[in-house]
């Protein structure tokens, strides 16, 4: 089953390099987002682009990964529509292998996106001031969050009729989560009612953890770094506890 999952993960990765849209998602898109936010809005928001890149880069990584983690539902839905899954199902492999293969393949995509964003950030002036293991923990944390979140996408992918619908529903969920957070601006600059949402939005805690681990600055929402990280771990556990059983139930029903 592990070997089968790896073979199928390789398929996901190969397909990503073949499919310009998906490749752009994890390479060009984070770079464009960084350029737009840092150079266009950076001066206005933080006074200088140099200051803003420190603030925005962790958030851009989180946003990129959130969008990337939702393609799994679109891909699974397409595979089912096109009959590729019928082929897998007629083979003597574990029923869960295509699913885990897709998740493993996505971890590779996340790693590419994170690397691209960090390297590009370093080029335009992002300074790594925290110990290396903080950076490593940040990467593990965001990938862990993505893998927990992908079950929502799997569930949508199994229930929606078309891959277009999966995409639409996913965006509807991701936009308020990413923009209704401290991704691009400090939470303290937001109206009070919005601050209420931002402080309970798990994505805010992911971003604050990333910011703390990558830049050493924390406490925008008022928690310590450890507190933020524990919040993220708790959200991951909650996401998996709710959506993993639902997603695998929907998957088994379809497969």
């Amino acid at each position: 089953m592990i070997r089968d999952s790896l073979i199928l993960a390789k398929r996901t990765v190969t397909k990503m390099f073949r499919n310009p849209e998906q490749f752009v998602d994890v390479t060009v898109q984070p770079i464009i987002m960084t350029v737009i936010f840092v150079f266009i809005f950076g001066g206005a928001i933080a006074g200088s682009t140099g200051k803003y890149v420190e603030f925005a880069l962790p958030g851009i990584i989180v946003q990129t990964i959130m969008f990337t983690s939702l393609t799994i539902g679109v891909n699974l839905n397409t595979d089912i529509q096109k009959g590729v899954f019928d082929r897998f199902r007629s083979l003597p492999i574990a029923r869960s292998a295509p699913l885990f293969g897709a998740v493993l393949g996505d971890i590779v995509r996340h790693s590419i996106a994170i690397t691209v964003t960090l390297v590009f950030g370093a080029i335009i002036g992002f300074e790594f001031v925290t110990p290396w293991w903080h950076v490593a923990l940040a990467i593990v944390l965001i990938i862990g969050f993505a893998v927990s979140l992908c079950w929502v996408s799997v569930l949508i992918g199994m229930l929606a009729r078309s891959s277009g619908a999966v995409q639409g529903i996913s965006f509807l969920i991701v936009f308020p989560l990413t923009f209704g957070s401290s991704t691009f601006v400090p939470a303290s600059t937001l109206p009070t009612w919005l601050q209420g949402w931002v402080s309970i939005n798990p994505v805010t805690h992911v971003i604050e953890s990333m910011r703390g681990l990558l830049t050493g600055n924390t406490g925008v929402v008022g928690d310590t770094l450890t507190g933020q990280v524990l919040w993220v771990i708790a959200s991951c556990v909650a996401l998996v506890a709710i959506f993993f059983p639902l997603a695998t139930w929907a998957y088994r029903r379809k497969i």
């Binding site: 070997r3 089968d4 073979i7 199928l8 390789k10 398929r11 190969t14 397909k15 073949r18 499919n19 096109k82 009959g83 590729v84 019928d86 082929r87 897998f88 007629s90 083979l91 003597p92 492999i93 292998a97």
Partner: peptide
């Protein structure tokens, strides 16, 4: 068994060789 469906269920984003090798590995 081997199954060939009504809709050709090969993966469009892979080459012919990649499709067959992947299935071979899964077998």
């Amino acid at each position: 068994i081997g199954l060939t469906g009504q809709y050709a269920s090969v993966d469009e984003d892979l080459t012919g060789v990649q499709n067959l090798v992947m299935i071979g590995q899964l077998l």
